[in-house]
Design a binder for these strands. Structure first.
Length: 925
DNA sequence: TAGATGGACTA
DNA sequence: ATAGTCCATCTAC
């Protein structure tokens, strides 16, 4: 790797680019000292420097930051970076300490006024190249690609992507020396550099490939056709300026040359002090050499642990793997050797490869395993393309594996294990010992840090880019299924899946273990829930497809009639379901006044708007009815019957356990959590969710669970009392706000109170409440003031929650499930306010989610004990569980289920579940 | 053909 | 005003 000149490579760190990026990493944003000084960006940059030093042990690290104030580019072009918001205070406050730390580490630190860090880096790289010194520039900024030469490479330390000359060509499609031309053509929104309108990377590459340079493109501008050609010609005058702005200056006058910038000895005393001040415990431990004797601080006393989870950093540490050994298994001996190894290791990671992502249709094609990092095996059993080698038989392999997979002693590690469990259940294997799902580990660790699919997790936590399924199967219509993929390619992919899953577990679980409450959510709620959800998915629900077909038909007729009526009223034919066409007709042709605009600025045709317009005009009413009905038809009556499994004759959803920010489940394909209920037409769809012969549908839902949780959390005396006395809570609220006796509350007053109660759960603003109730803002504010006067405990709770969110960067449920709120201290007022509302809502919504999950566990445990196939839990809809129960035992079973749900949590107010029963879901509700 | 947009459905 | 999923349309590739 080192070059012939045998000099240490120069490692130039673009400190400012990393500082900004680290600042925006949610996981880092939550970090601060006990006294509230934010440290996330400091931590991020230091971690990055640390990993650079590890990757380039003999490298000569130099760190460069932007200086304060304007640069020569602003003189050239006053609008340069004029759009940039000022630097947020919580970032600014991290810069000086970071500089101090870097200097104490003994690393040369350059901050040169009048130019940007890029220019300093460019200058040093050029000098180094002239001396024959290899240079590596560590940056996240694509503009730096212009500096790449034979002797200068870029490394993005956050993604671990290295770019040399060929890399630049591959990534950008142009050579490094064309990068400036490329940037000039595209312009830069962020830096406010003008470019050619509508010219993105694709067009820029196309032109530069044709004409070589910006000059070439300019010379040939008159030949470019179409709108984009006009745009190019419009831009001709300012393109030279854009070129100048995009050019990194490589002749900055510096006090020291590249050669003179050498590290000095670290000032350990100063460093220690700084690390202590900023509570950078891991770095401190490394500095004082105590890292190996005490790998984790968590095994110590409790108070320390509590502190560690509020202000300290929990690091996800990946295992180092020097090389990987992935094996494809074709014969019985090799297989049995692996089997013995798995058995011996007491825990292993596995993954199934199948023909479909739909668990009801999937057929097993192969399995992969790993029990030490870097080593994994793939066992193909059903690749059937022409010329596929002979493979072990699926039945034999599964028969051998069955005892292991069903053992409660041997622990399983997987990524989205619910899928594998469902697939294997079709081969008569009931997986047990389900201990670690890496998807859920990541979710419990931080629900919003990343998506929780394997590719994303590997990139984020292992710094590893996995082979993606599309890479081996292709995409679009001609995507192959797994059985059609060449075994050698498939084998590497599949083995990597198992290996990465194991490595993710080894990285994530120890991190999770440092957060005792989240570990409990993982161990006591989420992992036990996984097989329960698998059973519900597998069991499915029964629908009456004929009834839905009838409804589709009658909806179709009504829609046709509405369409004709709408065309008549509009005086022209148009597509009723096109908001765009409707906008034109309503607001241009019919000249109806615009009430509200969409986020993009177009006049809105949303329901609330049409509702209002319907008072004065006939067309909006027709559109409204059409909208509602066509939604019902396309999403429900047409679609649901098509999704019935031919295998079971029932409808099987997928519940997702790692999607929502707050801890709720979500449901897809189909979504059973948004089946209509409000409109008359909508309820008809619920009538198609039926019980099997001799069975009843029982639906049990929690009454006002989120408000009860609010009462519990706020411990407001009035609210707790109201619930304890079993009052109609909206009515009771109305009586307080409007200062009337309970029995004199009007229905209008109750409605307002109900809106306020909902508003509270949603982190209400006077603005939002006013909109909801169609009243003035002042009036809404008066209602709120009165509410908080009557329920002061709630006000205190809200204030404390905002305060807590702001100081620690997250809020939590009563079981300690956390939601991080990266925007809680945002400078942008809108984002900050939105984060505050989420902060208010999450503890209530999330605690409700925790409680119903606990109820599901209790119910499932009881059902397993009963082992009675006349009772089945079929659906969960956030605060409601739906069952199929044989009519002979429906009464006593329902009573028992209600009791289990009522006892799922102990709050300071009663937790009440209410049951309904019927032949279909509509009747049961 | 993928992604954005605007709208509608749920708790 | 909190949290989601899914649909049709339109646009850009």
């Amino acid at each position: 790797m080192s070059n012939s000149a045998n000099l240490s490579p120069l490692i130039l760190v673009d400190g400012s680019s990393y500082l900004f990026r680290a600042y925006h990493v949610p996981y880092l944003q939550a970090l601060s000292t006990a006294s509230g000084q934010p440290t996330g960006a400091i931590t991020g940059v230091l971690n990055m420097i640390r990993s650079l030093k590890k990757d380039y042990p003999n490298g000569n690290v130099v760190v460069v930051f932007d200086a304060k104030g304007k640069t020569f580019r602003s003189d050239m072009y006053p609008e340069y970076k004029a759009n940039r918001p000022p630097m947020p205070d919580d970032l600014r406050s991290q810069i000086a300490p970071l500089h101090e730390i870097i200097e104490a580490m003994g690393l040369p630190l350059l901050v040169v006024p009048g130019v940007e860090a890029d220019d300093v880096i460019g200058t040093l790289a050029k000098q180094a190249s002239e001396q024959g010194i290899e240079t590596v520039i560590s940056t996240g900024d694509k503009d730096m690609a212009q500096l790449v030469t034979e002797h200068v490479r870029l490394i993005n330390t956050m993604t671990n992507v290295e770019l040399d000359v060929d890399g630049v060509i591959e990534k950008f499609g142009v050579k490094p020396e064309q990068i400036i031309d490329y940037l000039a053509l595209m312009g830069d929104k962020v830096d406010n550099i003008p470019g050619v309108v509508k010219c993105g990377p694709k067009t820029a590459v196309k032109w530069l490939t044709e004409h070589g340079t910006l000059e070439g493109v300019i010379a040939n501008a008159d030949k470019v056709k179409g709108k984009i050609g006009e745009n190019l010609r419009d831009a001709l005058e300012q393109l030279p300026l854009s070129y100048q702005l995009a050019t990194i200056k490589c002749d900055v006058e510096l006090e020291q040359t590249a050669e003179q910038l050498q590290p000095t000895a670290a000032d350990v005393e100063k460093l220690t002090e700084l690390y202590q001040t900023f509570e950078l415990r891991r770095l401190l431990a490394e500095l004082t050499g105590s890292s190996d004797s005490e790998p984790q601080e968590t095994s110590k006393a409790k108070p320390k642990q509590a502190k560690a989870s509020t202000s300290d950093e929990v690091i996800v540490q990946a295992v180092e793997v020097s090389e990987t050994q992935y094996q494809i298994i074709y014969n019985q001996d090799e297989f049995l050797t692996w089997l013995a190894k798995l058995k011996e290791s007491k825990r292993f990671a596995f993954d199934t490869e199948t023909t479909s992502i739909d668990y009801m249709q999937a057929e097993l094609v192969g399995l992969s395993f790993a029990c030490e990092p870097g080593k994994a095996a793939y066992v193909p059993v059903a690749h059937d393309y022409v010329g596929a080698p002979e493979q072990l038989s699926r039945d034999w392999v599964l028969a051998q594996l069955k005892p292991l997979l069903e053992s409660t002693e041997i622990l399983k590690i997987g990524q989205n294990l619910k899928y594998d469990i469902n697939v294997l259940s079709h081969y008569d294997i009931e997986v047990q010992g389900i201990a670690f799902d890496t998807m859920i580990e990541s979710y419990c660790f931080n629900s919003i840090a990343t998506r929780h699919n394997m590719d994303a997790l590997a990139e984020k936590y292992l710094d590893h880019k996995t082979v993606h399924f599309e890479d081996i199967a292709g995409k679009g219509a001609k995507q192959l299924t797994f059985n059609q993929i060449d075994i050698e390619k498939a084998g590497h992919y599949a083995a990597e899946d198992a290996d990465i899953t194991l490595r993710l577990h080894l990285a994530l679980f120890p991190a999770l273990e440092q957060l005792s409450e989240q570990l409990a959510v993982f161990n006591d709620i989420e992992m036990p829930l996984l097989p329960v959800l698998a059973r519900m998915e597998q069991g499915g629900v029964l629908i009456d497809s004929d009834l839905l077909a009838e409804q589709s038909q009658s909806l179709g007729q009504r829609l046709a009639a509405l369409e004709i009526e709408a065309h008549n009223l509009a005086g022209q034919s148009f597509n009723l379901s096109s908001p765009k066409q409707l906008q034109k007709i309503l607001f241009e042709d019919l000249k109806i006044p615009v009430i509200k605009k969409t986020p993009k600025g177009a006049p809105s045709t949303a329901e609330e708007v049409l509702q209002e317009l319907a008072l004065d005009y006939p067309l909006p009413k027709v559109i409204l009815e059409n909208r509602g009905l066509s939604k019902l038809k396309s999403t429900y009556t047409d679609k649901l019957p098509l999704m019935v499994s031919s295998r079971s004759g029932r409808l099987h959803t997928s519940y997702h356990q790692a999607v929502t920010a707050t801890g709720r489940l979500s449901s897809t394909e189909p979504n059973l959590q948004n089946i209509p209920i409000r409109s008359e037409q909508g309820r008809k769809i619920r009538q198609a969710f039926i019980a099997p012969k001799d069975h009843k549908i029982v639906a049990i839902d929690y009454s006002q669970i989120e408000l009860r949780i609010m009462a519990h959390l706020s411990n407001d005396k009035g609210l707790v009392t109201a619930f304890s006395e079993g009052k109609d809570i909206h009515k009771a609220t109305a009586a307080e706000i409007f200062a009337v006796p309970l029995d004199q509350v009007t229905s209008e007053q109750r409605r307002s109170a109900k809106a306020i109660n909902f508003g509270l759960i949603y982190g209400m603003s006077a603005f939002g409440l006013a909109k909801q109730l169609h009243i003035g803002r002042n009036q809404a504010q008066e209602y709120m003031d009165m509410y908080f006067k009557r329920y002061p405990g709630v006000l205190t709770y809200m204030e404390e929650t905002r305060e807590q969110a702001s100081s620690q960067g997250y809020v939590e449920t009563i079981y300690g499930r956390r939601l991080y709120l990266p925007d809680i201290n945002a400078r942008n007022g809108m984002r900050k306010k939105a984060a505050e509302r989420a902060a208010i809502n999450a503890p209530m919504q999330g605690t409700a989610a925790d409680i119903i999950k606990k109820a599901m566990l209790a119910v499932d445990t009881w059902l397993q004990e009963q082992a009675d196939d006349r009772i089945k839990m079929t659906m969960q809809v956030h605060d409601e569980l739906i069952f199929e129960i044989h009519q002979d035992i429906v009464e006593e079973t329902t009573q028992k289920l209600v009791e289990l749900m009522n006892n799922a949590a102990e709050l300071s107010v009663p937790l009440i579940a209410e049951a309904g029963m019927g032949d279909n879901w509509d009747e049961a509700h």
